[in-house]
Write a protein that binds this DNA or RNA. Structure first.
Lengths: 183, 183
DNA sequence: CTATAATTGTGAGCAGGTAATAATAGCCGG
DNA sequence: CCGGCTATTATTACCTGCTCACAATTATAG
């Protein structure tokens, strides 16, 4: 009996982990137990009710969408010298991690660099056209990534930049970006 | 009188737009009207109740987090020949867009390519160490991006890949990736 | 066989509503 | 100033998805 219960509770946990939108009713049917059993299980596992779970997801949404979503600049702008240099900082969080290696996924580091480059281009129509990038060492959650973009050359319709990202003074990323500013 | 109502309704609309978590009770207090007035306003504006609003935000979260968040592979795997080639497809949505140019942000295209490369590396410890990438033309919302990664060279601890992304048979992105598989 | 654990049932109550219906307040034109 | 209209407020019944408290039943291990 005890085994059955443990089994159900762990399944319940993972079920709700990747689908928080299930009612106690639905869960009871899935496990073929009474609704009260489900409620007791939730109590013991410290899982809040449907509405609270949904609220939590919704709140996370508000926070996470900012972590890599629609913001123009990924990270926080620290310094901005038009036509010369821009610096942004970004705190690496668990949301950015690749499970298998526990390291920050390359696209997040690229995103910080690329968005800073576009920001520094300071044109309403800047578009990244080329980049040569190096990820010098893996980054872990909790590190603060400071990214610096510097304009190295400027042509009529192109801007060349050097972008580097450091954590604790060690360079973790370096890249050369070419942006198009036709218009 | 009519002016007052219009004023209130438009304020209500924008209030709820950037904070969907307000109850009718709270709104009534904010506007110093009865709760029924708020309900009528919501009806006229077609704004659903708190719980529905929260649910919508939570659902968006689920969709958006997948758009560039925690998934191992960004896009859907279409083909996978271990050690040789992998193909994924990704539908460009409005969530991926840079407002100023209305084009898909480079990091999303990079993310699709990079995550496919890591997937193809098929090692529990693959890490991108270098990439030379080109964005050949801008991508707009609605396009279907088909990304192909091919292994071009394999060393003891490194994998070299060619990754290209096409939309309607035109190549929009091309890159050479070097991954580290030390372990 | 019995003590304990697990499960199920019941009833009250709550938040945040919908839906329907009715009463009241404010204003405007004639 | 009064009828008519819109806007607002009130009232009541009902809904979902719970919580909380308490009791009853069933299973099972010792």
């Amino acid at each position: 009996m005890r085994a059955k219960k443990r089994q159900r509770q762990s399944e319940l946990q993972s079920l709700l982990d990747d689908n928080p939108f299930l009612t106690d009713q639905e869960l009871a049917e899935k496990f073929a137990v009474s609704i009260q059993t489900i409620r007791l299980d939730r109590m013991e596992l410290g899982i809040p009710e449907l509405r609270e779970r949904v609220k939590m997801v919704a709140n996370d949404a508000y926070a996470k969408i900012k972590s890599l979503g629609e913001e123009a600049l990924i990270g926080d702008l620290q310094e901005f010298v038009p036509g010369v240099r821009a610096v942004s900082s970004l705190d690496a969080t668990m949301d950015m991690i690749y499970d298998r290696t526990m390291t920050v996924r390359a696209e997040h580091i690229f995103a910080q660099a690329n968005s800073l480059a576009i920001c520094l281009a300071n044109s309403s129509e800047a578009v990244t056209v080329q980049a040569s990038i190096e990820f010098l060492r893996p980054v872990y959650a909790g590190e603060r990534l400071v990214c610096t973009a510097t304009i190295s050359k400027r042509e009529e319709k192109r801007i060349y930049m050097e972008v580097t990202t450091s954590s604790n003074d060690a360079v973790v990323f370096a890249g050369k970006f070419i942006l198009d500013i036709s218009v």
